[in-house]
């Protein structure tokens, strides 16, 4: 597949909230400086949350194929992938993932690469 979801590195990413404390550099000082609290900001991604990846039923796609795709794209264990596949089969749709828009878009692209009927929906 051409599209692989980009794993975000662990830790605080640009634009995410962060609260840090800086201690006094000069240990000889008898007093400790007041902690500096950085301004807490709300990232655009937080504002955008949540988006969901929805897969819709298609009677042509094989159940085993759909299960394999869910395992590959989302890294779900077989049981979880089968649960979602059966939800698609019986209820017509299943929400496979929800979270940040950028990643949800990548998942939808991957699912279309496997020829599944997938859409991106904003919750609410």
């Amino acid at each position: 597949m051409s599209w692989q979801p980009q794993r975000r590195r662990a830790g605080v990413a640009q634009g995410e909230s962060a609260v840090t404390f800086s201690a006094a550099k000069d240990a000889t000082q008898s007093t400790v400086e007041d902690p500096v609290i950085e301004k807490e900001t709300r990232s655009q991604e937080d504002v955008d949350l949540p988006w969901q990846v929805v897969v819709h039923n298609d009677p042509v796609n094989l159940m085993t194929y759909v299960t394999m795709v869910f395992q590959r794209v989302f890294g779900y264990p077989r049981e979880k992938a089968e649960k979602h596949m059966l939800e698609v089969h019986h209820q017509g749709r299943s929400i496979l993932w929800s979270g940040m828009r950028e990643r949800a878009e990548l998942y939808v692209q991957q699912l279309h690469g496997y020829l599944l009927l997938a859409t991106l929906e904003k919750v609410g």
């Binding site: 094989l62 085993t64 194929y65 395992q71 590959r72 989302f74 890294g75 779900y76 264990p77 993932w97």
Partner: peptide
């Protein structure tokens, strides 16, 4: 599908 035997699993989110 049967012969390729499932797929490498990624870490679940």
């Amino acid at each position: 599908l049967r012969e390729i035997g499932g797929c490498p699993e990624k870490t679940s989110d």
